[in-house]
Amino acid sequence: MLEYDFMQRAFIAGILIAILASISGVFIVLKRYSMIGETLAHSSLVGVAVALISSNNPLWVAIIFALISAWIIEYLRESFDLYSDSVLSILLSGSLALAVVIVSVGGNFNTSLFSYLFGSILAVSFEDVITILIVGGISLAVLLFNANKLYFIAYDEEVAKVSGIKVKALNFLLVSVVAIIISLSIRIVGSLLIGALMVIPVTAALQYKGGFLKTMLLSLFFSVGSVIGGMSVSYYFSLPSGASIVLFVIGIFIISLAVTRR
């Protein structure tokens, strides 16, 4: 299958997304923020719908919409006495509603939008791969550079503040990086399923009860394995790539549960 250019592109993009999703996913899950992936994916879908209507590049418009949504979420969480999951739920429903309205107005691009909902390996262009490599590479560097601070914040936000860590700025940075990663991912995994790739590998890795590094490496391994496995199944059985990847990672989670409960 790797003799085809489109599969090479899909694998390069997919593996980078798996790395990004699992590393950012560790912080998201530990902060009890698992639903943010779903919410931002729906916000980026609004961007895709707007881009299709206005004939712009969907990836960049999706990033802009996801970033705005991420900042609104963090602002509401910081400034008002609201539960995080309620804020995420409001933004998720609002984004989906807006995307549906735009789709209804636009009328004739439902097929294109479908590939953004469930992911399609055929949809990855050479430009997408370059964008994912550059933007994804920068996002990864930002995450790794701040990994220990984000880990401290996830464990104890108050003590991190007293230690002189700029908690507010780093929380904004984390949601911004997550928004970018999600927007980069929806081509391959799909907006309805990317949240799973952020949360399930981490949850499976947590079953092995290791420290920070072990959990992050296991999560990375599960995520990359699921993307390679899922995309291969997708190719041989002509299935949507996102759904195949998510079913693969759920399989890993079930095996992890069984193995660690012995």
Partner: peptide, 15 residues
Amino acid sequence: FPATALDIVKMGKTS
């Protein structure tokens, strides 16, 4: 929470 005692104490040096 995936943290060893050493991971936790290292946090004190994060900044």
